[in-house]
Design a protein around this nucleic acid. Structure first.
Lengths: 229, 229, 229, 229
DNA sequence: AATGAATGAGCGTTCATTCAT
DNA sequence: TATGAATGAACGCTCATTCAT
């Protein structure tokens, strides 16, 4: 349990993998002043990197400040409270996932089955990334005790499920909405569950290929053959 | 973000749901001295209750001590460091899950398909319990940054998968081990994934019945019809 | 003890009672540039309102700035240091009291006793105002640790006593100066003392009428019948 | 305004006048452990000394800790929050005043007028003490924004007025209660008002003798001759 | 087995002030 | 005039840990 503290103590700025999280877009509040905007971007990127590398508890204001090369006082100038920072961070992170996943299945010219397969493949391809593997379990844990995280996270998931719902509606126009939605739900969280087992540095990450095949095959069969009884 | 603090401020000892977690067994190191043993049990039970009710960060030594009615000094007598306490807590929690799940499928006289269904049903029935919904995401997050938690948790999962592996081996003796294991893995984490969406106080907890039916049907189909190609 | 913080959190700009303190006159240092002068006036008025509503500690540069709708940087342009602001604020506040009280007794055609009564009545009428009740105890406390406040405040009191001294000199030309001055002093601080008990929102504010009658009667008797022995 | 900070910076432990405030009685919570009790006594005495010497704002947890020779962590062990400390401090301070003033007039064998004179003399004798001069204005200012201080303080004053009420009831059994109480009130706050003018290091401290004579004479006359009309 | 006492580090936050633009 | 940015110090508080009794 103590390795976190030790990490925090000895880790230098450069060791943090900010490079892996470059797609955060920070709202530009003071148009015309680019400096502050860049600083806020750096802050969020660094905070996310710490969150990913060392976990929620390590992501303290002081830790973020030193990792950014900022003084604590200046960090609180840009984000007056930790809560402000966390909220904007979550907004940015979640927005980045939305940007990534929503346009996935808008590629026309594919049959719905192919689009289903493609959707699942893209989701499962993302699982073993360090960012996803580390970030989401953190969010799941936080969501249990923090309504804001809970709501934002399930909002993201709802949007991520929308294209899947559209695909299945095409494949199975006969299904009542509730059954269709629950199929979508099942497929969605069956894939999410793989994070803990086949994610970054997880025991079965090497088997992700076979897992993917089994999962996608199973999902396609399910959608094809499901009957509400 | 602040609700933890507020909970901590207003929550009284009695409100903690120790009642829901009565099945912890603490190793009795001092045979004959039952008092200390009971105290250690109370400590772990209380710690778990806090972990479940308020999250990992709230589970501080002070918090545990006051919730137990112990003085801090006495708590550190029983568990010299927080790490000691956490390790024994995780051991006890994980052992309790093992006691719960391992004997599940040893009921003879059932066909393997029935046992598969039964296994999945039992696992999914446990998902919406407060204890499971709150505890496991916490473990998943911790496992990302703490090798001890990582190892103990995956050890638990490995044991939990063993009966499923036996069932599928019976159903599909033709399958190579790797394929069989991966099927088991997929079924296992597909169910785990439901925690975040259909667990205690989660948005789709009401739909757990339909989810269960879809999941089990899908798993049975999968095991029956899977071909390694 | 925490209500200040809560006040600070929830109070909006408009709730501050700037309306009650409109009689501040700020020295215009840049004749011709009225904009800055108006800004300085707004700043002082707002600062006073905060001082009255929330106390000395709440009157921070940031708090004043946001309450004024100014940016902190701009506030420090107008008042380079907090000390500058405080000094000018005190000067303005004290000057406003001087403007209020000095002309009180210059109304001719009244007998000295009537003017004494009138003076006391005016002073006592002012006691239950929010401004006076809140401001003066703050000044008394500050004066104990800050020579500037001490000196400015007693300068104000000295000027406020002057008309009273004139009245009593008329009524009792026989009294030696020291005795007359001490009578003035006694009457003066006997009235000041009522602030804490019968001021704004104080326990005996409802009894201010009877208090006034007792006080004035007592003072008139005292001046009439006092003998140095 | 800056001298407070400088005082805080350069003042050493020994310079604080703890000697002037030795009559605080701290509730003994852990019977048997005298060490902690002594520590808490020292803490309150030191806190009071700082409050008197440097004012409310200077009485920070860090300031108190260093002035006591304690570490901050240890101070918060004895008083978990500043609020706890402040409350116990005020309770102790106010209790000490009660111990001092309540038994004043229980000395029998004196005529009521003599007891009235004696009461006023004792109150006025206390005014120029550093402790009283410094402490009460601080309380008055705090009471304006803090209901706890407000209530405790006026509770003290109510008890302090009780003996005076008894005396006047003896002298003037003909007076209705409300008139008697208001007389008491007037006498009481007329004396309190002298704090700001004739207290410790105040401009008219040298004239306290004459003030005392005028005040007491005036009060005796008032009680004797007051008519409700 | 239990308690009180103490330490040192860290937390989030507020603040007065300075300065470049 | 006015704004954004930054600094350094202090604040109240929580924490894991150690130790004498």
């Amino acid at each position: 349990m103590t390795q976190l503290r030790q990490l925090g103590r000895f880790m230098q700025r450069d060791e943090i993998s900010t490079a892996t999280v470059t797609d955060l877009i920070v709202p530009d509040r003071n148009i015309g002043y680019t400096k502050g905007h860049e600083t806020r971007e750096t802050i969020l990127r660094t905070a996310l990197a710490i969150l990913i590398d060392e976990g929620w508890q390590a992501m303290s204001m002081r830790r973020i400040a030193t990792a950014c090369g900022l003084k604590l006082g200046n960090l609180t100038y840009h984000y007056r409270t930790r809560e402000d920072l966390v909220r904007e961070l979550l907004d940015a992170v979640i927005a980045s996932y939305e940007r990534e996943f929503v346009p996935i299945v808008q590629q026309d010219g594919l049959r719905p089955e192919q689009r289903l397969e493609r959707y699942c493949r893209l989701v499962l391809d993302d699982i073993p990334s360090k960012k996803t593997t580390r970030l989401f379990p953190e969010l799941w844990a936080l969501a249990n005790h923090d309504p804001f995280v809970h709501d934002r996270m399930h909002e993201l998931y709802a949007r991520a499920r929308a294209p899947l719902d559209a695909i299945i509606a095409e494949m199975r126009p006969d299904l009542p909405a509730e059954h269709r939605e629950t199929l979508v739900l099942f497929i969605s969280f069956a894939m999410e569950g793989s994070t803990v087992f086949a994610g970054y540095e997880k025991p079965f990450v090497a088997r992700i290929g076979l897992i993917k095949r089994i999962a996608i095959g199973s999902f396609v069969d399910l959608v094809r053959s499901y009957t509400p009884d």
